[in-house]
């Protein structure tokens, strides 16, 4: 991938060159930012570094992280997906509702994932084939998904879910919590897609210059459709974890999640205009937000002030990234 590569073949050797090459990857500064915030929180809180707290932190951050993985793809192509929060809530409540109605959990989960993917595909159709701006399309479907979720549930949470469904939010495999495992799985797939397939390269190309990509003979519309479908799917996966962790379908869940996901992508070093970024950077960005949330909570900082601090850090990060951008 171009971002990973050294400028010339000659300086591809030696420690200094290796460091230099690292510095040019979009993930370098996010990692430093993460390390700084992490160190600060560890110094300010005695309990922050405990294993149970760190696992708790990762588990809490996993939902935004999974949504942000799909958001990364949309932003990479120069688009955005604002509908992720309501799509997550709709998928989650649908799973809950179907299980209450006696449908086996496996089927209910599948139906929820399909609905999330379908919502994403609808976004993709409008963006890719009708040529509408993603921010407008997903703003509209954001309202539609939220409304449908509320209509479906009548506005009330759906609880009384079968006990085995708790596995996805509260269970663990080989000592690792399921939300964290699922998150790692999503990022592994995302990494292979972006770094090791032709499709991934096309997504970078579309974000870098959509017209040139199209004229060179790439079916840009298909790949955009894919991107929004995947974003809807990751939102639905987040809905699965959230519903399972709470053991209830919450029609009002996920308010503002799209903004946290966008923040994670941007903190992860991606260009909001597309064409530049790494999915592992987004994971770092999501964990950075998680560390902030967790650390500030431990310090007893009021939620109101937390918003101010998080906003300030995002502004600072973007300011620094613009200064070093080519």
């Amino acid at each position: 991938m171009s971002q990973l590569a050294a400028k010339t073949d000659a300086d591809a050797h030696g420690l200094a060159a290796r460091l230099n090459r690292w510095r040019r990857t979009p993930i370098f500064y996010p990692l430093i930012g993460f390390a700084l915030v992490f160190a600060a929180m560890a110094l300010l809180n005695d309990s922050f570094l405990s294993t149970s707290n760190l696992i708790n932190l990762a588990r809490q951050a996993s939902i935004i992280a999974i949504i942000a993985a799909g958001m990364s793809l949309a932003i990479l192509t120069g688009g955005i997906d604002l509908s992720v929060g309501p799509v997550m809530a709709l998928s989650g409540t649908l799973m809950a509702g179907l299980m209450i109605a006696g449908i086996p959990p496996a089927l209910a989960i599948a139906a929820g994932l399909v609905v999330g993917a379908a919502f994403g595909a609808a976004n993709g159709l409008f963006v890719a084939f009708a040529g509408m701006p993603p921010i407008i399309v997903t703003l509209a479907t954001m309202g539609i998904a939220r409304g449908l979720g509320l209509i479906y549930t009548g506005g009330y949470p759906i609880s009384g879910l079968p006990a085995e469904f708790a596995f996805f939010g509260r269970g663990s495999v080989a000592g690792i919590d399921m939300p964290i495992l699922i998150m790692l799985g999503v990022y592994a797939i995302g990494y292979v897609l972006l770094a090791h397939t032709a499709t991934g390269r096309y997504l970078y190309a579309i974000g870098g210059n959509e017209e040139a990509t199209r004229l060179s003979g790439i079916r840009v519309s298909r790949y955009k459709l894919l991107v929004y479908t995947l974003s809807g799917t990751t939102a639905a996966i987040a809905g699965l974890i959230l519903t399972s962790r709470l053991m209830s379908g919450q029609p009002n869940a996920g308010v503002g999640f799209e903004l946290d996901a966008i923040a994670a992508v941007v903190l992860g070093g991606a260009a909001i205009t597309g064409g530049r970024g790494m999915i592992l950077g987004t994971l770092v960005g999501a964990m950075l937000l998680g560390v902030l949330n967790n650390g500030l909570n431990l310090m007893g900082v009021s939620p109101y002030l937390q918003n101010v601090i998080k906003g300030g850090i995002i502004l600072l990060a973007i300011y620094l990234s613009r200064k070093r951008a080519p």
Partner: peptide, 30 residues
């Protein structure tokens, strides 16, 4: 610049842009 090249891409990425189908190995990986 606006229709031919993906400017942030390297020479290699620009050249292989519409040639990637030829470099598919096992599992369709590049």
């Amino acid at each position: 610049k606006t229709q031919g090249l993906v400017l942030p891409f390297s020479c290699r990425d620009n050249i292989s842009l519409n040639n990637l189908a030829r470099f598919k190995g096992p599992l369709r990986l590049l």
